[in-house]
Simulated scan of single mutants.
Amino acid sequence: MASAGNKRTSRRGWRPLAWLLGLLALGSASVSAQDAPAHWMAYAASVSGELQQRLQQEQDPHAQRLLAWLQEHPDAPAPLVVSVWIAGDGAISKLEFDSLGDARVDADLRAALQATPLPAPPPKDMRQPLRLGLTLTQ
């Protein structure tokens, strides 16, 4: 319940969009989600869920600034497409996305997503990067 002094009138959160946008890519080669092995898809779903949680962390100032910025900019790209490379220890070794047009917001997105290693490393045979689409929801 929002008070009169509280700008937040609804809780918004992130959800994955087709958790891979249909692609697992390696360089210019890609594999459709329909053709990807089940263990790749299971891992991608796990990563998507983890990144979604990171973007909803109320105690993370990076995530909160990003959320506030997106709420103030309803014309921001949707979904927010990120390409993620994951090292053998589960750390996100590389992260690419189109700039949101604000260097601080881009840095907050990067910091929130790369804060800690993922709970599990990728399958050894999995192609990378994972292309994930994240959408802000009401």
Rank of each mutant, 00 (worst) to 15 (best):
M1G: 09
S3Q: 08
K7Q: 08
S10Y: 08
S10C: 13
G13S: 10
R15S: 12
R15A: 11
L17Q: 09
L20S: 12
A25C: 15
L26E: 08
G27L: 06
S28V: 15
A29S: 13
S30C: 09
V31S: 01
V31R: 00
W40K: 07
M41P: 12
A42R: 10
A44Y: 00
A45G: 13
S46A: 08
G49M: 07
G49I: 05
Q52Y: 02
Q52L: 12
Q53I: 03
R54H: 07
R54Q: 01
L55V: 11
L55N: 04
E58C: 10
Q59L: 03
P61I: 08
P61H: 01
Q64H: 08
Q64Y: 04
L66F: 02
L66C: 03
D75T: 13
P79D: 00
L80H: 07
V81L: 09
V84F: 06
I92T: 02
S93A: 14
K94E: 15
L95S: 00
A103S: 11
A103Y: 03
V105M: 08
D106L: 05
A107Y: 11
A112Y: 06
L113I: 15
L113E: 03
A115W: 02
A115V: 02
T116P: 00
P117W: 01
P119G: 14
P121I: 00
P122H: 01
P122Y: 10
M126R: 13
R127F: 15
Q128N: 12
Q128Y: 10
L130K: 00
G133P: 13
L134H: 06
L134T: 12
T135W: 05
L136Y: 04
T137M: 03
T137H: 05
